[in-house]
């Protein structure tokens, strides 16, 4: 393949720096490793952290899948996938099980990761203590001391105000009994799936210049109180209008004419796979 730029867009020096940060991240689960964060052809805040991690990983023979809030077809996912393909020539897929590297914004695919599969999550705000402490200098010290009163306080205040731990996404987790970590804005439904995953989970925050990781088979616990246990969004009684799936994470939609509320699998490729396998009851 002839290109006017290096394989996977970056120069080799940039790749090396990101790779070194990623290796440290895997060695210290949940710890945010600073990195230089290069200028990318998309704006910061649009997935540049994830994209940089992905581009440093990709090699010939890889198969990439990119999703944005569960779908392979959103503009953001398509643009990022096109950029990766254009600069590497590798194959792309929408099948979770076929992909060697999956880049995602705000969802973990419905089908569990397998060993050696790599999930790269885009992170807008990596610091779980930022709501209570604006200084990076201070939050780094709080992490160093394992001083997480601030993270507990945020949850406590929600309970005092609303009677439960509100907040639909990015519920903080404790990784390997040491670091409190933001799992990126995934729904609470996905939090338990971070725990003891068979695959490798990497997190890239381009604007905030941080890379962190959860290695496979690592203990990940969502923060909760004894009397206010962690709860995922209830999907009870919901059925996918297209494929008939139950017990997965759903999008809630409204019929414009009848105003009837209906549900569809949020993971569109999982839904499509079920339909192709004849799992659809309604189509």
């Amino acid at each position: 393949m002839k290109n006017a730029y290096n394989f996977a867009f970056f120069d080799e020096g940039s790749k090396k720096e990101i790779r070194r940060a990623t290796l440290k991240a895997v060695a210290i689960p949940g710890y945010q490793v600073p990195f230089a964060s290069r200028e990318m052809p998309i704006a910061r805040g649009w997935g540049t952290g994830g994209l940089q991690v992905t581009l440093s990983l990709i090699n010939r023979g890889d198969v990439i899948k990119v999703i944005d809030q569960g779908t392979d077809e959103s503009v953001n996912a398509v643009s990022i996938r096109n950029l990766i393909q254009k600069t590497t020539g590798i194959q792309a897929t929408i099948d979770t099980l076929e992909a060697t590297v999956i880049q995602s914004r705000h969802r973990i695919p419905e089908e569990p990761l397998e060993e050696e599969q790599i999930l790269v999550l885009q992170v807008p705000m990596p610091e779980p203590l930022r709501f209570v402490e604006s200084s990076e200098y201070k939050t780094k010290r709080l992490h160093g001391d394992g001083e997480y009163s601030g993270a507990w306080l945020v949850l406590y205040e929600k309970i005092m105000k609303f009677g439960k731990m509100t907040g639909g996404a990015a519920h903080p987790v404790l990784v390997h009994d040491r670091y409190v970590m933001s799992p990126s804005p995934i729904p609470k439904y996905d939090n338990p799936r971070l725990d003891h995953s068979e695959g490798i989970q990497l997190f890239g925050a381009g604007r905030e210049k941080k890379i962190y990781a959860i290695p496979p088979y690592t203990r990940v616990v969502s923060l909760a109180f004894d009397d206010y246990p962690f709860e995922v969004e209830s999907q009870e009684g919901r059925v996918c209008r297209l494929c008939g799936a139950r017990g997965v994470f759903f999008d809630e939609l409204e019929d414009e004419k009848t105003h009837e509320v209906y549900y569809q699998c949020n993971d569109s490729s999982y839904c499509l796979k079920r339909l192709n396998q004849g799992g659809g009851d309604h189509v």
């Binding site: 790749k15 990623t22 290796l23 060695a27 440093s56 990709i58 490798i200 496979p216």
Partner: peptide
């Protein structure tokens, strides 16, 4: 080096 890095990442992860 890309291949070597991936093996390093796998080795560090497992």
């Amino acid at each position: 080096t890309a291949k070597a890095y991936r093996r390093l990442l796998l080795a560090g992860s497992y």
